[in-house]
Amino acid sequence: CDVLRRAGLFSCLTGLRLSDCIRLQWENIVKLADGGWGMDIITKKTSTAAILPISEEALQLCGERGTGQVFKNLTNSTVALYLKPWIKASGIEKHITFHCFRHTFATLQLAEGTDIYTVSKLLTHSNLATTQVYADVVDELKRDAAERISLKMPTKAESDQT
């Protein structure tokens, strides 16, 4: 389902919740003072008003500019019907929900060095502690990466196992 694919990838690039992707209207996609594009929204879950910048790539996922709903025919039912087969066809065995796209956005932002305060604002979290969960995931990934490299020579027993 093309609309689900585009909305899911849009969420990966913006951190937008499913409920807000569904509600996103073309009138909410605005040109910002810096010349880039953004979303002028009020989030459904927290009723937070925000103007959030979006990348050109995210804008392209919206499709051709029109009127009304950006992701036409995107509903909770559409997601329920098509997400699981799409993920399975991708070869992913893990249980994935639309909200995982939001998690992906947050984790990638932190892994790329975006400070936690900015990520929190982009996610429209009202409490920085909510965003801290993602920082803990990134710290764990960093620890795992640090442990992968060793200058120690393997023992004879370890060499024989390879």
Rank of each mutant, 00 (worst) to 15 (best):
I92Q: 02
D136N: 12
R65M: 13
R65N: 07
D136I: 01
T75K: 10
Y82K: 12
L108D: 06
L52S: 07
T118M: 05
P53G: 14
K44Q: 15
K84D: 14
K72E: 14
I29C: 15
T97M: 03
S90I: 01
W37M: 12
K88E: 15
T78L: 04
I149Q: 03
P85G: 13
Y134L: 04
K121E: 08
E147S: 14
R148S: 08
E27S: 14
G91A: 06
L110A: 06
N28K: 02
E27R: 13
I29W: 00
K72H: 14
G113N: 07
G91I: 01
I54W: 04
T97I: 04
C21K: 08
L123C: 05
G91T: 04
W37D: 01
S55C: 07
Y117S: 00
F101W: 11
I96L: 02
L32D: 00
L59Q: 06
G66I: 06
I96V: 15
R148G: 00
G36D: 04
F105E: 01
R23L: 14
N76D: 15
A135V: 01
S120K: 03
A129D: 09
S120N: 08
E64C: 10
T130G: 07
Q69G: 02
T114Y: 06
E112L: 13
D115K: 00
F71D: 03
N73C: 11
A58Y: 07
K45I: 05
L141R: 15
G38F: 06
L110Q: 10
F101A: 12
G63A: 10
T75I: 10
S77M: 09
G91P: 02
R102L: 01
H103A: 05
Q69T: 08
T43Y: 12
E147H: 07
D40T: 05
I22W: 03
T104L: 02
D34W: 11
I87H: 04
A135H: 04
I41D: 07
L122C: 00
E93L: 01
L128Q: 03
